[in-house]
Simulated assay, not measured.
Amino acid sequence: MITVDRLTKSYGDYTAVDDVSFVCQPGRVTGFLGPNGAGKTTTMRVMVGLTLPTSGQVTIGGVRYHDIPNPGRHVGVLLDASAQHAGRTGREILTIGAKTMGLPMSRVDEMLKLVGLDDTEAKRRLRNYSLGMKQRLGIAHALLGDPSVLILDEPANGLDPAGIRWMRGLLKSYADRGGTVLLSSHLLHEVEQIADEMILIGRGRIVARGDRATLLAQASGGPSALVVSLDNAALSQGLSARGFTVEPAGAGLRVGATPEDVGRAALEAGIVLTDLRAGGAGLEDLFLELTSGAAREAVPGVRTSAPLNGGLPA
C-alpha cells in the first residue's frame, strides 16, 4: 500500500505539489494522470526518496522509502528509462541490480524473457537501445526483486501498440497477484483501459478521483445516448412520448436517456438499431476540463476554470 499524506513540495515561490493525499491499494492499478508539469513526477520522486518534501509524507507499507531495508525487494521503480550507464549492456544493468539486491543470477534471465529482450538485445549497450527497448529494460529492473509495490512514471512512453498491450497485460497480472501499482501518465486512453482507480492532478492539486464509472458519471452531467436506427423519425417520436429529450445528431439522434432506456424503447417499438452508445462527456472531456488550467495548449470548448515478495504490506 502507498499512502500519500498531505504532501507539499515547493521550490521557492513555486509549489509543484500542493497538499496532495491519496492511497494506492493492494491488488489494484491506480492511474496517476495529469498534463506535463502537473506534479506527477515530483510526487513519485518524493515517494522513493529522491526529492525531500516541504511538508507531509509518503509511506509504503507504513514505512518511508529510505527506511526500507533492501528496498528493491519491496518497491519496484521506473522513473526514467534512460537513467542507466549508457555504456553498459542490458544484461550488465540487470546483473548489477541482482547482485545489489542479493538475487540469484537466474533472475536476470527470467526478467529478460519476461520483457521480451532476446540474447542479442541483452548484449547491446544501452546507448544503442531504442526508447521502447529502454522502457522494457526499465520494467525488467523494476520487477527484478519481485516487489509488492510498483511505481512507474510514463512506462508506455516509446512503446509501440503491441508493446503497450503487452505492458497492460503484465501490470494487470501483477495487480491480480496482489501487487500495488501506481502508474503515472498523461495518456488517459491507455490508462483507463487498465486502471481500477484514477487520480487526476492539475497544477499540483488533486482535481478528481474515482473508478471509470464514477468519473464518467461526473463528466456526463446526466444520462445521454447517441443512437442510429433504420427509422429515426419513428424512434424520435417514441422516445419523445416517453418524456425523453431528443435532438438530431449526425446520422442519428442524441437522447437525454441511458442507452438501456433507448434500447428498451426501440425494442418495444420494433425499430432496428444500427448504433447505440453512451453520448455524455467522456473521460477525456473531463480530464481536459479539470486540468485545462495546467495545460500548455488552449483547448477549444474547454473552460479554463504467484504471491509477490513479502516483507512489507502491499
Rank of each mutant, 00 (worst) to 15 (best):
H85A: 14
A86E: 14
A86R: 12
A86I: 07
A86T: 14
A86S: 14
G87K: 04
G87V: 05
G87T: 06
G87N: 11
R88K: 14
R88H: 14
R88G: 01
T89M: 00
T89N: 00
T89H: 00
T89P: 00
T89E: 00
T89L: 01
G90S: 09
G90H: 03
G90P: 10
G90A: 10
G90C: 11
G90L: 06
R91L: 11
E92L: 05
E92A: 14
E92I: 07
I93R: 00
I93P: 00
L94A: 04
L94Y: 02
L94Q: 02
T95I: 08
I96M: 15
I96D: 14
G97P: 05
G97M: 11
A98K: 09
A98T: 12
A98V: 12
A98W: 10
A98N: 08
A98Y: 11
K99G: 13
K99P: 06
K99I: 14
K99H: 15
T100K: 06
T100P: 01
T100L: 15
M101D: 02
M101E: 06
M101W: 08
G102R: 02
G102C: 09
G102W: 06
G102T: 07
L103D: 03
L103P: 08
L103V: 08
L103I: 11
L103E: 08
L103K: 02
P104Y: 12
P104N: 11
P104T: 10
P104E: 08
M105C: 01
M105G: 03
M105T: 10
M105R: 10
S106M: 00
S106T: 12
S106E: 03
R107N: 01
R107M: 04
R107T: 07
R107Y: 05
V108F: 07
D109N: 04
D109Y: 01
D109Q: 02
E110Q: 13
M111C: 10
M111V: 08
M111W: 04
M111T: 04
M111Y: 04
M111I: 07
M111Q: 14
L112Q: 07
L112V: 13
L112P: 10
L112T: 10
L112I: 13
K113C: 12
K113D: 15
K113V: 15
L114W: 03
L114E: 10
L114T: 12
G116D: 01
G116C: 01
L117F: 09
L117R: 05
D118F: 07
D118W: 06
D119S: 14
D119Q: 14
T120D: 11
T120L: 07
T120S: 05
T120W: 03
E121W: 05
E121L: 13
